Simulated scan of single mutants.
Amino acid sequence: MSTSVSVPDADQPCAYCGSRIFEHDPICVRDCDDGCGSPAYFCNYACLSAHVDENDLTAGDACEWSPGE
């Protein structure tokens, strides 16, 4: 398996708010449970967090912990 790295265009917009990502602290995210398709770029963690919350992307993805076990 190999990994490739690519740099987005200088004008790449944030997937959430549309701001240019390089004017902020950009984050690249891939959905590797869905074939590792095209990356989504977010201008900062706040936009990534809002995207995750609005799309309910954490539902069912957390480990369960039982303190009695």
Score class of each variant (00 low, 15 high):
N44A: 12
V52M: 09
S6N: 09
E64I: 10
D61Q: 12
T58Q: 08
S66G: 03
C28R: 03
T3G: 06
G37S: 04
C32F: 07
C32T: 10
N44P: 01
A62T: 05
C17D: 11
S19T: 03
G60A: 09
L48I: 08
V29A: 06
V7F: 08
D53A: 15
A10E: 14
S38Q: 13
D25I: 04
Q12L: 00
S4Y: 10
D31N: 10
M1I: 06
P67W: 02
I21A: 01
F22K: 04
V7D: 03
C14E: 04
G37A: 13
G35C: 05
L57Q: 11
T58I: 12
L48A: 11
S4K: 13
Y45G: 12
C36E: 15
Y16F: 13
S38I: 04
S6T: 14
G68H: 06
D56F: 07
E69T: 09
D34E: 14
S2T: 14
Y16E: 13
H24Q: 08
Q12G: 02
N55M: 02
S19G: 10
F42P: 00
C14S: 11
C14G: 03
M1N: 03
P13C: 02
D25E: 15
E54S: 11
A46P: 01
P26C: 10
C28W: 00
A50K: 15
V29F: 04
A59N: 11
A46L: 10
C36T: 06
W65Q: 07
P8S: 11
Y16D: 05
V5D: 05
A62G: 05
V7P: 00
G37H: 07
D61R: 14
A40H: 12
Q12H: 03
A50F: 07
E54R: 10
R20S: 06
V7G: 01
V7L: 13
H24I: 00
P39E: 10
P13S: 00
M1F: 10
